[in-house]
Write a protein that binds this DNA or RNA. Structure first.
Lengths: 160, 160
DNA sequence: ATAATATTAGTCAGGAATGGTCAAATTATG
DNA sequence: CATAATTTGACCATTCCTGACTAATATTAT
């Protein structure tokens, strides 16, 4: 597809590196100049694409010999991360963030694609839309219908 | 006899593209100017003609390099059971009735046990509890945590 | 040791480029 | 005529990109 954003390209570049090693250390200024962007854009990419809900842990150090270390964590093996994930969700979460979490669960094979699709359908914003009139049973109907509609389609994507 | 309105023409145009590729990415403003309509009419066309029930999955992103992605997916062979269930559910359904529907899907082997458990967790009455100050994101957090906890409660392995 | 300087990375706010929502106005349909 | 579908526009939300300023750490000078 059309990955028009530089941020997307930087993301791809970093994930390419991480597909070979579970952990990598980069120099912010080096990546920035490689893609001809200001250094702070690297922070932007990391903050929007390499978060815990995406399955990454990031550490850094400033000063001479400074670095940014990105580690891909395996949700299956790390119960503690799992706890932190639920902790992160807390009392409130938006549709996009929730989708990211489910994507991370899928990529780490905690759930199958069919299961992930059901989860995405369950937390869809159209289903959970709340107005004055809605009752619990109204929302339940929408959530259930949303999940059933998801089942109407074959799983098309890869990831298996 | 139905005179083709602009929305119909836009629909045809998009479906023409989708007849060649299963998936396409458009720029809302580009399509809008091509047909000389306001951008939000593209949303109207998508919301009325490219729905899940019709076999389309739509995703979008805003901001620079934003897009609307439309994917056409194939219906599974036996769709009758879904229609009937959705018809039965209607606009409102209680926890027990919903559980029964999910059990029926499980017994018919439409869903696996893990999938059924996820669905049950999603429509749990504690998750969908609605009071005066709940927001959409509040309910979403409860639904998502409920499903994740269900996954932990079982084995966290897809093949387990 | 301590201070000064150099070398990193982090934060934040703003502007630009998208797409989304909602309801009023208009048009088509039965 | 009554209702549903379409069309429009004002306003909102999100994402990306930049740069000025800040913070932390290492190195060098005194």
């Amino acid at each position: 597809m059309a990955e028009a954003n530089i941020s997307d390209l930087i993301e791809q570049y970093l994930k390419e590196i991480l597909s070979q090693d579970e952990i990598t250390e980069i120099k912010r200024s080096e990546i920035a100049s490689r893609f001809a962007v200001v250094p702070s854009q690297i922070n932007y990419v990391i903050n929007t694409r390499f978060t815990l809900q995406n399955g990454y842990i990031v550490e850094s150090k400033r000063g001479g010999g400074g670095y940014i270390r990105i580690e891909h964590v395996d949700l299956v093996d790390d119960t503690k991360i799992f706890d932190e994930l639920i902790d992160y969700i807390g009392d409130s979460i938006g549709n996009n963030n929730a989708d990211q979490i489910i994507t991370a669960l899928l990529e780490d094979k905690v759930v199958s694609e069919r299961e992930a699709n059901l989860m995405v359908a369950a937390i869809d914003k159209n289903s959970l839309r709340i107005s004055d009139k809605v009752s619990e049973n109204t929302v339940r109907a929408r959530v259930l219908v949303g999940m059933i509609n998801r089942l109407r389609f074959e799983s098309t994507n890869i990831h298996g």
